[in-house]
């Protein structure tokens, strides 16, 4: 049963990884906590599920959900972030939160507050692994997460866009002086982050075959914890932190109950912030947080 729980934890961790990566892209590059990501994730899930229910294929649903969330992320960037770029960090925090209130309201009015369910789970078959088993969808979630992370890795490490993003992350002004189109790169960071959130939403929608307008908030807060544990200024930390928190969560449920679970997750986050603010994987430098 422990093996089965580890598989459960890894799947959950994969989901957290994607959303945390989405938070961390914007946080790492621009130093902004975009709270609307939680809702972009939820909307991505709704778009994907709606398309499947309308009879479209997965191959349309996933990119469509990513595109919708990506575009909405750009809207958030233009309206809620760009005008407040120089404001204290609390401003974009609250303006992106305002967007999440709007998105949630829209979802309730369009899809209702009841869970939207797939008539049949997409792929119910399970592969046996001795005493444990893994669902096809579970496997798909993990595989797609790894693929998306690799794709993102390639973008960030080896493309012009990626170099620009890294330059902006180091120092926005210097990057601009050196000729990087900082404002276009900012838009790109939001768009990438949004489509990752959309992908996470649609994967979760398929995996759990049900979604509600309220999945964003709690999952989003957990993903923030994952981002912190992974080191908020270094994108790759979440690859370790996601599965770590996923497994920790699953084990604390088994051995302690759901109340202990949140204590463990957020306790871990606070510990990391206090003892290793650069994250479990981060280098030796401590990030100088922006002044409030």
């Amino acid at each position: 049963m422990l093996l089965q729980q580890l598989i459960n934890g890894l799947t959950l961790g994969a989901v957290y990884t994607l959303i945390a990566l989405s938070f961390s892209l914007v946080m790492g590059i621009l130093g902004v906590l975009n709270l609307a990501i939680a809702e972009l994730f939820m909307l991505g899930g709704y778009c994907g599920l709606t398309l499947i229910i309308m009879g479209h294929s997965v191959w349309l649903a996933v990119p469509a959900a990513m595109a919708v969330s990506g575009v909405l992320a750009v809207v958030v960037e233009r309206v809620a972030y760009r005008p407040l770029r120089d404001a204290p960090m609390i401003m974009p925090l609250l303006s992106t939160l305002a967007f999440s209130i709007i998105f949630q309201n829209v979802a309730v009015n369009v899809w209702g507050s009841d869970p939207l369910q797939l008539p049949d789970a997409l792929a119910d078959a399970r592969l046996s692994l001795g005493t444990a088993s893994i669902g096809i969808m579970q496997l798909a979630v993990i595989v797609v997460t790894v693929l998306l992370v690799v794709a993102l890795g390639v973008i960030v490490q080896s493309t012009k866009l990626g170099r620009g993003l890294r330059a902006v992350a180091e120092n926005r002004e210097v990057a601009r002086i050196l000729g990087a189109p900082a404002s276009r790169l900012t838009t790109a960071a939001f768009a990438l982050s949004g489509s990752l959130a959309g992908a996470a939403g649609v994967l979760i929608g398929f995996h759990y075959a049900a979604i509600t307008p309220y999945v964003g908030v709690d999952t989003g807060l957990k993903a923030i914890a994952v981002m912190v544990v992974g080191g908020s200024t270094r994108i790759w930390g979440v690859l370790i932190a996601g599965p770590l928190i996923g497994v920790a969560e699953v084990l604390s449920v088994v051995y302690g109950g759901s109340a202990i679970r949140d204590m463990v997750v957020y306790g871990l986050m606070i510990l990391v912030l206090l003892l290793r603010p650069q994250g479990v994987l981060g280098g030796s430098s401590m990030p100088e947080g922006e002044r409030v």
């Binding site: 049963m1 089965q4 729980q5 459960n8 934890g9 799947t11 959950l12 989901v15 979760i204 759990y208 979604i211 309220y214 999945v215 908030v217 709690d218 999952t219 969560e249 699953v250 084990l251 449920v253 088994v254 109950g257 759901s258 109340a259 679970r261 949140d262």
Partner: peptide, 18 residues
């Protein structure tokens, strides 16, 4: 030791496995 989860949880696989 009843098994518990929280409102808003999307993943209850650990609870169900237990």
């Amino acid at each position: 030791s009843p098994i518990s989860f929280n409102t808003g949880d999307i993943d209850v696989s650990a609870q169900v496995t237990a």
